[in-house]
């Protein structure tokens, strides 16, 4: 299912592009904010949870997911170079699965690791806040990568749609409007993270069983569908 050559090409394409700068800028910004907050307010569990929840998980993780998920396949489809992968005796779902693994790995490294470091800076992992949000970021990385990889496979406007989803739905509606919360990767991830943290610091509006089922369901369905779409991907010429 996993093809190391496809993985290598995907990594290099993903990290070699200019867009990849955002992968470094956002985590740097998070660490900067964490250091500033700690400097002005000292260690405070509630503030730590607010920063990690409000910026790291609600904004940074979905944005990194958009860059990594859509970037793992979108540009290749756009410019037609995917033809070099497709014209090979390699199963199309293998290509999607491999790209998913790469997207997940990149999203995890660039969102979960800085989240954990920011948590340490903010309150030294007091009340397990850093660990809880790191777990949330890890879990969210999987679902975001699968969703945005599918988006990159089916749409040429994947980045725009992804950004709208990440910024408007997840960051705004997902934290403000009740109904939207049930359909938010962020809330599902929080439900998983809630288990391990101190009282009331990490809270989700979705129950754990529902969250786990939705996370797994979305990830599997999106990956399966992307594989099917790639099997019938049409490379129309210029005509």
């Amino acid at each position: 299912m996993y093809n190391p050559t496809v993985a290598r090409l995907t990594y290099r394409a993903l990290l070699g592009r200019r867009r990849a700068a955002i992968l470094f800028v956002l985590p740097a910004l998070l660490l900067l904010i964490a250091a500033a907050v700690r400097g002005f307010n000292g260690a405070d569990d509630q503030i730590a949870a607010d920063v990690l929840g409000g910026f790291a998980l609600a904004t940074m993780t979905p944005l990194i997911g958009v860059i990594a998920g859509t970037g793992a396949i979108g540009p290749e489809i756009d410019d037609g170079s995917i033809v070099y992968l497709l014209a090979k005796p390699v199963k199309r779902p293998t290509i999607i699965f491999t790209k998913l693994i790469v997207a997940i790995a990149v999203t995890m490294v660039f969102s979960a690791v800085p989240t954990f470091l920011a948590g340490l800076i903010l309150n030294g992992n007091g009340q397990q806040v850093a660990v809880a949000y790191t777990v949330a970021a890890l879990v969210a990385s999987i679902a975001y990568s699968a969703l945005f990889l599918l988006l990159g496979t089916v749409s040429r406007h994947a980045v725009v749609i992804g950004l709208v989803y990440a910024l408007v739905w997840e960051a705004l509606f997902g934290s403000l409007i009740e109904g939207a919360k049930t359909l938010s990767v962020q809330q599902w991830a929080l439900a998983v993270a809630e288990k391990g943290s101190g009282e009331g610091l990490v809270a989700s509006d979705v129950g754990l069983p529902v969250a786990v089922v939705l996370l797994a369901g979305v990830t599997v369905a999106a990956t399966w569908y992307a594989g099917q779409k790639l099997r019938t991907l049409t490379l129309a010429g210029d005509e």
Partner: peptide
């Protein structure tokens, strides 16, 4: 169509320029 195994016998040189330029 939808048969990856034929690529063992087929080599394709596409018209489009795009390749993995960073390699």
């Amino acid at each position: 169509w939808r048969n990856e195994s034929v690529y063992r016998q087929i080599g394709v040189v596409p018209e489009r320029e795009a390749m993995y330029d960073f390699l």
